[in-house]
Nucleic acid binder design. Sequence first.
DNA 1: CATGAATGAGGTTTCATTCAT
DNA 2: CATGAATGAAACCTCATTCAT
Lengths: 213, 213, 213, 213
Amino acid sequence: MGIQERKERERERRRQQIMVAAKRVFSDRGFNKTTMEDIAREAELSPGTLYLYFKNKDELFSSLSIRILQYLNLRLEHVVNDEKDMGPDEKIEALKEVMYDVYEFDPLILINMFHLQSSDTLKNLSPQLLSNIKELSRNSLGLMARIFEEGTENDQFIDRHPMAFADIMWAIFSGVVLWEESKRIINEDKNYLKETLEIAFDIFARGIKKVET
Amino acid sequence: MGIQERKERERERRRQQIMVAAKRVFSDRGFNKTTMEDIAREAELSPGTLYLYFKNKDELFSSLSIRILQYLNLRLEHVVNDEKDMGPDEKIEALKEVMYDVYEFDPLILINMFHLQSSDTLKNLSPQLLSNIKELSRNSLGLMARIFEEGTENDQFIDRHPMAFADIMWAIFSGVVLWEESKRIINEDKNYLKETLEIAFDIFARGIKKVET
Amino acid sequence: MGIQERKERERERRRQQIMVAAKRVFSDRGFNKTTMEDIAREAELSPGTLYLYFKNKDELFSSLSIRILQYLNLRLEHVVNDEKDMGPDEKIEALKEVMYDVYEFDPLILINMFHLQSSDTLKNLSPQLLSNIKELSRNSLGLMARIFEEGTENDQFIDRHPMAFADIMWAIFSGVVLWEESKRIINEDKNYLKETLEIAFDIFARGIKKVET
Amino acid sequence: MGIQERKERERERRRQQIMVAAKRVFSDRGFNKTTMEDIAREAELSPGTLYLYFKNKDELFSSLSIRILQYLNLRLEHVVNDEKDMGPDEKIEALKEVMYDVYEFDPLILINMFHLQSSDTLKNLSPQLLSNIKELSRNSLGLMARIFEEGTENDQFIDRHPMAFADIMWAIFSGVVLWEESKRIINEDKNYLKETLEIAFDIFARGIKKVET
DNA sequence: CATGAATGAGGTTTCATTCAT
DNA sequence: CATGAATGAAACCTCATTCAT
């Protein structure tokens, strides 16, 4: 068991090493322009080795998305489940923090995640990985929806479909990050994203509250 | 002159024919998986012919984005410039219509446009085309911003940076369309998008109004 | 007959027009890089028209070589046949003039002629054209050989195979024009070719004379 | 070190293997008609492999020229530097041997070298390779020039520009090899080249000697 | 005769993936 | 487990040539 486990851990370390390298290269060059050899070089491994840890390029790429989705999920779960004494308003505030941290965790991987989603090659992922991704993103939306649901139940938010709320929330976040003009501005003024998110969440909070402040 | 013009029109017709085919295939298969031969076959032309009308695959792809951006621009200009007697509230309502029509005009091309923007190889577009795209998307955001600016000046909207408003607006729209889970739902329930947009714009309208109804 | 002839002449004029354009473009870009459309544009004709006058690209190219070979032949015939009162020494001097004029007539076409000869696509020339080229080049060598033959018969030149003499003569000329270093020098010093040819012919004249001066 | 070196040698072996195959195919079909796949098939490798050893088709082609130029250089250096006790006459004799051996070493590659020089696409060679070629051909001519220079200094050869002598010498050799009619004759009579070179060098030797024998 | 839009075969090159060491 | 040389399928793109007008 000791040995077994040690091996497993070693294997996981390698996977991480590769993913870190992959993230760097994908972020730098985008999906298409990145070759497996680029990643191998960055990871100081040989191309063949990558295939010992990832079935193919698409799976390697997708694993990056998995990682950030896992992080998002973790954080959302914490807000929804652990912070029992927060009111809906505070949870939305917390949600804002989560979203921003996700962005900071990996600003470019997010963009890549969209590439993943609006993409083609999702069909040659292993079924397990695919369902994993679907599960995670579904779960994330679900967790956000829960926050809004609570607000609705509390009669603090207007009564609408919570999933739609969650969708919009995510939209605000992701759209802000993606739209070309925004990217330009973000590059010039690092605070723009934060400010815009602030405004966005503020508007959102005002817009969904039943009793206006 | 007559002949010259006829030729020009004929040429434009061909371009459109190719773009229609390209749109279909790109939408079906995504950018990477789509080959020029696929498009040629769909357009019932030979591969070589495509290159008489588009410098390369990237330019063909980008031209599709141009088209929808032009449509968006046209519609936004109409709202901003021609509807002088609309109040800010009505204009946001009109904006909603525009966004939805854009989506109907070409639901998948929008996704592709994101691929374009979050992409890599857009550096080998002709400078003219590239600046054209930039100009159009910048202009669209600017027009949206104008709508919000008016509302702010009228003291009807809370006083924030109008560009950020526009950014969020676009975010809501595009994000809603893109997020994977949404896509799934949209495919199952065609009204979901409309409803969610309705909610989104409603929240947004409530959120930015200074004097609450 | 009048009309027939007029037409024929008109046709010949067109051929010349195309060849002049082709010569310019081939010289500028080399055989491979030159497209039929380039030539058409230079000739202010349409690509299709070229094929009314030349079976294919190779034939068009080869026709240029034909033209210069015809010129060479003409000049050589004049030296051999018309200048009955010249001695072998003088004829070699005349030969030098001819060679130099050929070079001036079309310095780059000569290089292209070598491309033709060391080339591949000579197999898809029309048999007639091919035999025409062979005939002309054979004839040129033959005419040169005659000059040396006379000198040998006169007991003025050493007794060797006259065709070999001609071959060497041609070699000197063509080699001088082709060798890369020479080209470089020629570009820097326009007189180099003339001088080198002068030396070459002088050496040659000294080398073949039976009675040394 | 041992491993490093073994790898390097293995790699060099592969390069040679490819070059041998390339030489065969280029010689057989000429540059344009030869496809990379042809070469790969001849080398019993896959097309992709060629690109592991040569940047592109042009570089592969040029490398062949390099090889023969290196051989030529080696031989010329031997004549010029190592054979201190040879007189100019003997050195010219040695030069003849060199030239003939070069021809035997690779009769068709020489023709291809001319294709290289009178060619177009040689601008997309790596700068290093290009300068390598230029260096080598310049050097070869320089070495030949040295031989003549010695003869001039010894007062055995007429006093002319030694580089021009070298140029002519090379011209004789290369021209003889190239001219179409010669090729035909060579194919029919294998001794023709040798004989003609013999005559050429004899004439040349007679032509440059100050004191006639 | 002239046109020039369309063709489509075919070439070069890339790169994800494999497998013998 | 790791390597990295080799693979070979497949993509983009060019351009000589044709043919309906």
